[in-house]
């Protein structure tokens, strides 16, 4: 289980290679990569600054990854989340899960990104032509996370 919270970009290919290297029990990997979009709510976005709560972020991501491992038979879990100033097209987050079979990999990856969106302490500040604005949480994200309640 690898959790990283960092400013720097990441190389998806290299990360997936590192996740699976030498682990021949793995039958499949599912990954999700989140990017900064150039539009939000009908307005162009020129940059996005991600703020987080150091210490709590890592703790929450570890708890969420631990919950995924409890629910599915996973060989490996990787979460990398960036913070700081990003521009459209930049990668924000990588979630990858590896398992012997595809169902566990697909489902746990979906679970991780849904739970992360409602529990990891990150906040997005968008720069638009009208000025900066804090991104508001979406009810649809809460609904997506609710789906995974046991």
């Amino acid at each position: 289980m690898t959790i990283r919270v960092q400013c720097e970009d990441f190389d998806v290919g290299a990360e997936l290679e590192a996740l699976t290297r030498g682990r021949t029990s793995i039958g499949g990997v599912t990954s999700f990569v989140g990017y900064v979009r150039d539009m939000a709510g009908g307005a162009p976005v020129s940059a996005m600054t991600l703020e987080h709560y150091p210490g709590m972020t890592e703790r929450q991501l570890e708890a969420i990854a631990g919950e995924a491992r409890r629910r599915w038979p996973l060989d490996a879990v990787l979460v990398i989340h960036r913070y700081g100033r990003l521009e459209p097209g930049d990668r924000i987050v990588l979630v990858a899960t590896a398992s012997a079979h595809r169902e566990a990999a697909f489902e746990s990856c979906h679970f991780l990104i849904d739970w992360l969106k409602t529990r990891a302490p990150f906040w997005k500040l968008e720069a638009t032509p009208e000025g900066e604005r804090w991104v508001e949480a979406k009810a649809s994200d809460d609904a997506a996370a609710q789906r995974w309640r046991e």
């Binding site: 987080h52 709560y53 703790r59 969106k117 409602t118 990150f122 906040w123 949480a137």
Partner: peptide, 26 residues
């Protein structure tokens, strides 16, 4: 102390309390 809590959770002198808007990561 870095765990999500509801508003009826007790607070004490040694606690680190964080207040923030709903999170928007991912």
């Amino acid at each position: 102390n870095r765990e999500h809590v509801p508003f009826d959770h007790p607070v004490g002198p040694g606690d680190e309390v964080a207040l923030f808007p709903p999170v928007t990561g991912g």
